[in-house]
């Protein structure tokens, strides 16, 4: 079997990160990564991208204010009454 190149690794990196590959394929990825700093950097920043995306949209979101929620309920209910 031929060794994986960078393109082979990056195009299936989601499976590697998700841990869904068979052990033999994962072993081939690990062998490439052991010798390719550029792909290790890509993997590191791919994972950082997922972390930042999640953190930026989820973390530290303060609870909605009671006033916003109250006005929203009122708006929905009155729109429903008019319908």
């Amino acid at each position: 079997m031929k060794d994986l190149n960078c393109r082979d690794v990056i195009e299936f990196l989601d499976d590697y990160v998700g841990g869904v590959q068979p052990a033999t394929v994962r072993h081939e990825f690990d062998a490439h990564l052991a010798e390719c700093p550029a792909c290790v950097d890509y993997l590191t920043t791919y994972r950082e991208t997922i972390r930042l995306c999640r953190a930026s949209c989820r973390e530290d979101l303060p609870p909605a204010s009671a006033e916003v929620e109250r006005r929203l309920i009122e708006a929905i209910v009155s729109a429903r009454r008019r319908a």
Binding site: N5, C6, R7, D8, I10, A38, C39, V40, D41, Y42, T44, T45, E48, L52, A55, S56, E59, D60
Partner: peptide
């Protein structure tokens, strides 16, 4: 099969001057 335009790894915490809210 080598990737073009390779740059070193980065992470957002490396942007020390950026406040957390600004990063988000």
């Amino acid at each position: 099969g080598h990737r073009q335009g390779v740059r070193p790894a980065w992470d957002a915490s490396g942007a020390a001057s950026l406040e957390r809210e600004e990063t988000r």
